[in-house]
């Protein structure tokens, strides 16, 4: 029973990690490529970490929760990285499949060289 749960978690995690990178390699502009690693990869690694927590909790007969720390950390940092990358890409005016919004006064222009 436990074996099946672990197998499902590990397989789901590995498949999502793979799909995240597949999106990174396959899609056509930076802004669409950003979606795969931010969501799919993060959930994939989250699944693997939960599998690890279950595995060590059962094996060592004590609760092993420090994997939760990495999971939380990844789920907090992934959107922050994505936001900063998107902001940098808009600042650098990367080519986009969608019409890009007008530049904002927030982005400084003194470093455009």
């Amino acid at each position: 029973m436990l074996d099946i749960l672990l197998s499902i978690l590990i397989l789901t995690g590995a498949i999502f990690t793979f799909i995240g990178s597949l999106g990174l390699a396959r899609l056509r502009d930076f802004y669409t490529r950003l979606h795969g690693p931010t969501k799919a990869t993060t959930l994939g690694v989250g699944c693997l970490l939960i599998a690890s927590a279950v595995f060590f909790s059962v094996r060592d007969e004590g609760v092993s929760l420090h994997e939760v720390l990495v999971t939380l950390f990844l789920f907090i940092t992934a959107p922050v990285s994505a936001h900063l990358l998107a902001k940098a890409a808009l600042h650098l005016k990367l080519k986009s499949l969608a019409p890009t919004p007008l530049p904002d006064s927030d982005t400084p222009s003194n470093s455009s060289d």
């Binding site: 590995a14 990178s21 990174l24 490529r33 690693p37 990869t41 690694v45 990358l85």
Partner: peptide, 23 residues
């Protein structure tokens, strides 16, 4: 082709490494 693409790829590589280490 651009710097943000490479940074995104590097960031994804970190997360993939974590996955590999956990496995």
């Amino acid at each position: 082709p651009d710097a943000p693409d490479r940074i995104l790829a590097l960031d994804t590589l970190y997360v993939n490494t974590i996955a590999l280490l956990v496995l």
